[in-house]
Amino acid sequence: MKKKILVIEDNEQNLYLIRYILEKNGYEVAAATDGMAGIETAAAVRPDLILLDIQLPVMDGYTVARRLREDPRTAPIPIVAVTSYAMAGDREKALASGCTGYIEKPIDPETFLAQVEAHLPPVGGGDA
């Protein structure tokens, strides 16, 4: 069974890029383009990992991460923040709001997959 990754990203090109890379590498990708939709999808789909853009319209990524952690259905899912806010404190802010990892934009297709897979829970119970 393919691993499911939820990508919450408002920029279409970025979403396309990430989806492309992940699907090409054998992952099942769910997507949401704003925070609320992301939270709902996460609860419904129960992905193995969530890639979360921080700069989102309406509800920012930090809030989304907190909500995901508050919901028992989504609380155990690792969340990796993807952001161009490469400033001191961004990383801490992201981790404090519940993220498990942090990938800086722009993503490098050569290293991106490795960064994502580092946060995937160990294989267990699946067909892999």
């Binding site: 920029n11 090109q13 890029l17 890379i21 700069q55 161009s84 934009k105 722009p106 297709p109 050569e110």
Partner: peptide, 23 residues
Amino acid sequence: MSHELRTPLNSIIGFTGILLQGL
């Protein structure tokens, strides 16, 4: 500026990378 300039660059770098990777 930082964000706005980086976002398109994300695409440029990302897709260039994909293409160069032969994906």
